[in-house]
Design a protein around this nucleic acid. Structure first.
Lengths: 353, 353
DNA sequence: TTCATTAATGTAAACGGTTACATTTGTGAA
DNA sequence: TTCACAAATGTAACCGTTTACATTAATGAA
């Protein structure tokens, strides 16, 4: 159906080589010849077939992108960063998501590999032990991790999750909290959550605070609600400060706490992780440890692309994180059932329409 | 480097045809032969090259996706819907974004076409007059619009934006508002915003309300802030009810209003459009007209895929929208400088850390 | 056992580009 | 004008599959 380079060659009365050279600008072609070729291309509406080209050159000018979830803004941000960088250098993106499932990681990487992407940018559940990464290494397809914890011989761009977790503990301490807790997604599906936890624990220990209680739960639905219910059964011992392993989780947690008539931050302070944009518009606005997601995506893409054009790359890039204060984290107060700020808040909410 | 079908054939002592048939399961291959082929594949770590296959079959099993912005959750949701559907049917996604710019629409579609995607799912600035769509039609590459207003001969999945806009006017009327206004992104880059405006105007007219004031502004930065400042110069005439053409815009608007000491919803009510998930967690929670983004993406993908396997498709799918009440839209009050709820609110905010 | 039929396998030509190498054309010096 | 050399262009093999068509092997009836 579509015109091929041979059609163009015939119409312009030149060889396919000349057309190819004209299209790609790889060699000079004489003015008059160029003119004829240009006309033929226009008349035939010729569009070079990237499939043919890829087969011939054995590179596709495309990058695979693998993220756990498309709906989580933290990953969209990274993808936005990747997109800019890739577009600039003429690369296309093949996007896939895994739902945090290592099996899916494998299957999408398999697809990417079959499609012969030139490189892959990805976030995996556990880089220490990842079949997907093994496939990539085995196929000698360059890749770059984003968000994951650095591992030997594995290019990664991330933040210092341990230090960041530690700093969260310090923030709570400054606000006078002593009963700390953490709500996290499954550690098996998020090595960074694990690192943040370790940092948090370490921070608490350094500050001579009692060891925080750690709760692992799935992000959505009953599991999380049950966990919180259990945790806040006994208000006299429950944590007054909760570190959530990511912002989306923090938002859910705040919602569930409110449902149980526990007010944030009057009774319980919450700090999230990621720094998704919208967080600052919430009520209460979300205190969080911000990582530069877009920059991380861009940096990873830039490194990978450099590698693809023969350059050298850094193995690990640790970008700076920064704490963003918010209303969800306040001074430690009393955690008692009859707390009054709580009442006033809960009557004010849900008043409309 | 990587093993080819010929390497496998040689090692298994069969012809390439047999290997191909075994890999694709298109013909029976005798048990013993199959065994040999399977072994050879495993030993050589053979992975069929999709590029070669595509060249041969002239389809790529890939879909192009074109959205205005990756960071806007409304589009991510649609992409999530598309991803599920595509993955199920073994299709890969090539994702691109346009920044609402028709020039970029053209250039990304060009790239997609060169890559010979089997079909394209996209949201354009103006489907009535789109070079990108013309290219697609010209190349006879099937496509399906998402979010855009339906146009002759152009498959689209969307909501009834006019009706929805009208209903927003009605919601404001129910709350007792009479001075209505709309803040919208550029109509030239969003046909749906235009439709929503038209519906809004129509709704107001039906209700015998004064014609709403319409403000067109860029989403971010100074432009929007200036617009709002001008609009709220004279509080005695300024609108008490503001319809924003999308949720992200509504969030910005609420922020800027607050900056000017105008409280939402006590002085001004705001209703958004899209129904992004996070909206319900804001303060004030965002009243909005919800469209089923994920379903829209999934439906478009399903239709397009059906079309690709020879089936017939519906030209236009109008999915149901629904109003989600929220705290940002309340009963009409007085719009005066000395309004007290405003003061109390503004001192309460930004109190932490 | 032989032969007609069917099942399994093989051969080789596409698919649409790129590019090493060969050939032709153009240029300026002698 | 002739010739050496450079610039422009052409020829054809190759990239890794699929698949129409040809061939060979297996099967079962006579």
């Amino acid at each position: 159906m579509a015109a091929t380079i041979r059609d163009v060659a015939r119409k312009a009365n030149v060889s396919v080589a000349t057309v190819s050279r004209f299209v790609n600008g790889t060699h000079k072609v004489r003015g008059e010849t160029a003119e004829r070729v240009k006309e033929a291309i226009a008349e035939l509406d010729f569009r070079p077939n990237a499939v043919g080209r890829s087969l011939s050159t054995s590179h596709t000018k495309s990058l695979g992108v693998v993220i756990p979830s498309i709906s989580n803004p933290v990953f969209s941000e990274a993808v936005a960063g990747i997109t800019n960088e890739a577009k600039q250098q003429g690369y296309s993106l093949m996007l896939t998501s895994t739902n945090y499932d290592p099996e899916e990681e494998q299957s999408v990487v398999e697809t990417l590999l079959e499609n012969r992407v030139d490189g892959v940018l990805l976030t995996v559940a556990d880089p220490e032990n990842s079949a997907a990464l093994d496939m990539l290494r085995n196929a000698r397809t360059p890749f770059f991790l984003i968000y994951n914890q650095p591992v030997e011989q594995t290019p990664t761009v991330t933040v210092d999750n341990v230090l960041a977790g530690q700093e969260v503990a310090e923030q709570f301490a400054v606000l006078g909290h002593t009963r700390l807790g953490m709500i996290s997604g499954r550690f098996t599906t998020s090595d960074r959550a694990l690192a943040r936890k370790n940092g948090f624990l370490k921070g608490a220990a350094n500050l001579k605070l009692p060891a925080p209680v750690i709760c692992e739960a799935d992000h959505e639905g009953r599991a999380l609600e049950q966990t919180l219910k259990a945790l806040y059964q006994d208000l006299s011992t429950a944590p007054t400060a909760l570190f959530c392993s990511n912002d989306l989780l923090a938002i859910s947690v705040i919602g569930y706490l409110r449902k149980q008539d526990i007010s944030v931050p009057q009774q319980v302070s919450v700090i999230g992780f990621d720094g998704i944009d919208v967080g600052s518009h919430f009520y209460p606005s979300l205190a969080t440890m911000v990582q530069p997601s877009q920059e991380m995506g861009a940096a990873a893409a830039k490194q990978l692309l450099a590698r693809l054009s023969g350059g050298d790359i850094k193995e690990a890039l640790i970008l700076p994180h920064v704490f963003r204060p918010g209303e969800s984290a306040g001074p430690a107060g009393k955690l008692t059932p009859a707390s009054s700020p709580n009442l006033s808040q809960n009557t004010r909410r849900r008043s409309t329409t």
